[in-house]
Amino acid sequence: MPESMCIHVEHVSRSFGKKKVIDDVTLEVGRGEIFGLLGPSGAGKTTLVKMMAGIDEATTGTIYVLNTKMPSLQTMQRIGFMAQSDALYGELTALENLQFFAAIYGLKGKKQKQRIEEVAELVNLTEHLRKPVHNYSGGMKRRLSLAASLLHEPDVLILDEPTVGIDPVLRQSIWQELERVRQQGTTIVVTTHVMDEAEKCQRLAMIRNGRLIAVGSPAELKAKTNSQTIEQAFLYFGGAKL
């Protein structure tokens, strides 16, 4: 496998009981790109990224992240994961939440303090660090979740619907942040069901009913299908007659 690739998903299927949630998906994510997983809710995006993050395992097929077969605890140290729900401790302040996750990733002392300041700055929460998280707005919680996943300077950042339920202004600022993180060399995998967000990814995978229906850059996908928008392209690949 070429070194330039960061994640390899090879013929991966995942079943829960009899239900096949992911069906023979093969794709590659290059280093330093923002890779979007686009699909309606229930398509299997979360299951796929959980397998990439090492939380879940493929029923058949294999996933390699940074040249290691997943799941691997060593590799998980190099992955940042942000789940769909804000996995935060509401009773604690934002600072205490960050301290906790930093310590879990083995950051201590000065380094910990420095990283917390950096990520807080990045998501614009520096002034609100001392507030308990249950007083945070939804958008602030999302940003804090993002900050927590960036603490240990991961090589791979996996984000499950990072902008769901967030107002357009904030959504834009999160995407700007992601772009900044990418430019520092981080590979980012992001799931979304918002078609216009998909335009901001370097490459996209379209997923429907657990199957991969198309992969390519937004421009390629549109060109291939003669569509004006990603949404039209998705419809085309999904088999709808236009």
Binding site: L73, M76, Q77, Y89, F101, I104, A148
Partner: peptide, 14 residues
């Protein structure tokens, strides 16, 4: 239920 367990399991924590 808060998802923090899943979050913890996404870390190298054993």
């Amino acid at each position: 239920t808060n998802g923090t367990l899943e979050r913890l399991l996404a870390t190298p924590l054993q």
